[in-house]
Simulated scan of single mutants.
Amino acid sequence: MHNSYWYYALLILSIILFGFILFKKRNTQTLFLLLTMIGMGYIIETIIFNFLGSYEYNPNFIKHNTFYDSNLGAFVSNAFSLPVVATLIATFHLSWIWMVLFSGIFVGIEWLFLKLHIYSHNWWRLEHTGFGLPFYFAISRVYHKWILQPSNGLKHNWLLYLIIGSLSASAHILPVIFFANRIYSPGWFENSGRDSIAFADIFYLCDSLFYCLMSKLNWKMKWSKYILAGLVMYAVNQVLIGVGILHSLVWWDQPYYVGLSLLLILITEIVDKRLSKLPYIEDS
């Protein structure tokens, strides 16, 4: 059980740090930046962790599936802790020295987890972490400037996609991990957990794009978007069940994802408008 304590400590410290950031800044831009960096973290983890098998975590959160357990470890470390620090760096305009310092801290944490045998490398190395993190932190500063100077162009749409992607991925994948409400079986990997999460990643990347595109439609009857979104989600689920990829295991599984699609359409439209209208706020 000691495995979990280290991951809980990292999670709690990250929550406290983000609470401090929100307390100091008290603006919507800060929350949007965190969600943007979480969205980036999910995309990076989809590529290097889920599909390329870069490393493995052993937080001992989930007993019934080792890959789900590893995926939660990746979430705590790379899809939450790193985005929180990236948000801190960007919102407080910290210099490259701080980026290098925080990169070194995370390399140290990674080394410690390796020594504790609660984390292991496949082809990944500590040098990859040390080299990549300064660029990840630098990207957060770029995104922060985009958020502070809203537009309706490619920058705006990319930010919107990352923000909605962070919400869609969390709401889609975490129930699968914690409640085993569904399994995907595309046959890409021998490990059933990895196979399921890999397909769930592709699913969330696609449905996030769908929600963003739907938010751009200016229909007179706005409620028709919700009907269409619900019908599309239901139809996609039925097709996946029909071809043997989706196995729905609990009664609430399909209603949950249909309802989630309606909620995400609503959130997408709200975020889209907020990103377009956020006034420039000079940080103190």
Rank of each mutant, 00 (worst) to 15 (best):
P255K: 06
I139K: 01
P255I: 07
F92Y: 13
F75G: 04
R125T: 15
L160V: 05
S170V: 11
G19M: 05
N27Q: 11
C206G: 13
Y136F: 15
H2Y: 14
G165L: 09
D195Q: 02
A235V: 08
F137G: 01
R26L: 11
E110R: 07
R274T: 09
E45W: 03
D253I: 06
L35D: 07
L260K: 07
W252Q: 11
F61E: 04
T268F: 02
L148E: 12
V232H: 02
A90R: 02
A198D: 00
C212W: 02
A9C: 10
V76M: 01
Y136W: 00
W146N: 00
S166M: 03
I62F: 06
G108K: 05
I118Q: 05
Y55F: 15
S151K: 13
M37D: 07
G244K: 00
S248R: 07
G153D: 06
L162S: 06
W158K: 12
G193C: 09
L88P: 07
F92H: 12
L33A: 02
E269Y: 10
L249T: 10
I265T: 08
S224G: 07
S196W: 02
I21D: 03
P83C: 05
I241T: 13
I97V: 13
I47W: 08
T91S: 10
H172G: 11
I48K: 08
R194G: 01
L116Y: 12
S70T: 05
L266D: 13
F49Y: 08
G259H: 03
L213N: 09
Q29G: 15
H64Y: 15
H93R: 10
Q254W: 02
G244I: 03
S70D: 08
H121A: 02
L94A: 08
A229Q: 07
N218S: 14
L217K: 14
L133E: 04
R182S: 14
S81K: 00
L94Q: 06
T28P: 01
I43D: 08
P279M: 03
P150Y: 04
S151W: 04
L205F: 10
H2L: 13
Y8E: 13
S261V: 00
I62D: 05
S192C: 09
N152I: 08
L205D: 09
P59S: 05
I202P: 07
L262F: 08
F135S: 07
M233N: 06
I105L: 13
M37W: 01
I270L: 14
K24P: 00
I89W: 07
L82E: 00
I163N: 01
F131Y: 15
L159V: 05
S224N: 12
L263S: 10
I89T: 01
V258A: 02
V239I: 13
F178M: 11
F32Q: 04
Y211D: 08
I38E: 09
G187W: 01
W219T: 14
Y7R: 02
C212M: 11
L33K: 00
Y184I: 00
N60H: 12
L160E: 00
S81H: 00
Q238Y: 09
V84A: 01
F23K: 14
I147M: 03
N65S: 13
I118P: 03
I15D: 07
P255Q: 06
S70A: 14
Y5N: 11
A86W: 00
R182H: 15
C206I: 15
S54R: 03
I21H: 01
Y55C: 00
I44T: 10
Q149A: 14
P175K: 04
M1C: 10
D272V: 05
